[in-house]
Simulated scan of single mutants.
Amino acid sequence: MISLSSKELVGLIMAFIWPLTRILGLIAIAPPFGNSSIPRRIKIAFGIVLALIITPGIPPFINADPVSLSGVMILTQQLIIGLGMGFVMRLVFAAIELAGSMIGMTMGLGFASFFDPQSRGNTSALAQLLVLIATVLFFSLNVHHAMLIALMDSFKTIPVSMTLQNGFDFHRLAIWGEQIFIYGLKLSLPLIAALLLTNVALGILTRAAPQLNVFGIGFTITISVGFLILGMILPYLTLPIENLFQYGVETMQSLGKVIQHPLPPVVKPIPS
């Protein structure tokens, strides 16, 4: 008969609760797991299953009373780490949404917006189109597998402890926040440049033929050119989005200052 003391029982529970807290923090915010349309019970069940798989293979934890100040501190730190790792991947999709919003405003479709359950706000139709394309690529390129592998490796690079002195890199997380604007601009730049040339051409046409009602035909021309260019460049957006996913997973992996294991292959090539 197996007998456990109260101290050993508490240790086993904490060995499960602390990894579960980090996992649930990532699931709560990282797309697509953090989508509000997914029931909370499904998210919690998924986190428990991951914790049962990950816990036996991670380094041993320190002994701390769960109801003490140190135990609460460790629990809070694990939640912050999970939220930080999920926030990295959330910014990847935010950059894609920003690119779609910039394209929509340049085309004159800024008013075509609807409620987004992910961000719980109004987003443009083109932003949602790019997000749906990115979500398909997210699963087809196995980025969700790489994200879960990065989460498993984080227990080695950022071990469960009372301090984050040798683990979580908050500066790296803050620097990653600026990438939302850089990559959003890069993704939308080809179409913005094409629409800029279209507007310049319409301006020249207005000067050449003042009697022409540019306000009546300009809106139609801008939208038509926008959709035409978008259809032309859409197949070429696969590689930039793939690189953005790669960079996001690498950033999740590098949130631990000491990287012990190299990042495994993140994405599989798209079959031709």
Rank of each mutant, 00 (worst) to 15 (best):
M162G: 13
L195R: 02
K186I: 15
N199M: 14
L185M: 12
T206W: 08
T206I: 05
I175G: 01
H171F: 13
S188L: 00
L212C: 04
I217R: 00
W176E: 06
L212Y: 07
A193D: 02
A193E: 04
L189G: 00
G184D: 00
W176K: 01
I182C: 01
S161Q: 13
L187M: 11
T206H: 11
S161H: 10
A194N: 00
L187G: 02
L191G: 01
P190F: 05
I217K: 00
I175D: 08
H171M: 12
T206G: 14
M162Q: 10
Y183M: 05
I192N: 03
L164Y: 06
R207G: 11
P210W: 10
F170M: 11
K186L: 14
E178S: 12
A174W: 12
K186Y: 14
F168V: 13
A209T: 09
I175Q: 07
A193V: 15
S188Y: 00
I192S: 02
Q179K: 11
G177R: 00
I204R: 05
L195I: 14
L212F: 12
A194F: 03
G184S: 02
I175C: 03
A194V: 14
L173Y: 13
L187S: 03
T198E: 11
A208H: 07
A201W: 11
N166Y: 13
D169L: 10
M162N: 10
F215G: 08
L205D: 05
T198R: 05
V214A: 02
L187D: 03
I192A: 04
A174R: 09
Q211A: 10
L164A: 06
T163N: 07
A208Y: 09
F168T: 11
V214M: 08
L196G: 15
R207D: 09
P190R: 02
I182S: 05
L191D: 01
V214E: 01
N213Y: 04
F215V: 04
L205C: 09
A201F: 14
F170W: 13
L189M: 08
I180P: 00
L195A: 06
A174P: 02
L197I: 15
F170L: 14
L191S: 02
I204G: 05
L187N: 03
L195T: 08
I192T: 05
I192D: 01
G203T: 14
G203H: 12
I180C: 03
L197C: 12
K186R: 12
T206C: 03
L164W: 07
K186S: 08
T198N: 12
E178I: 15
L185W: 04
T206E: 09
I204A: 14
L212S: 05
A209N: 08
L185I: 10
I192C: 03
G184L: 00
Q179V: 10
A201G: 15
L164D: 09
L173M: 15
V200D: 04
D169E: 11
L205S: 15
S161T: 13
F170I: 15
V200E: 07
E178Y: 11
Q179I: 10
Q211I: 10
Q165T: 14
F215K: 00
L187T: 05
T198S: 13
S188A: 15
L202F: 08
L173W: 11
A209G: 00
L189Q: 07
S161C: 05
I180W: 01
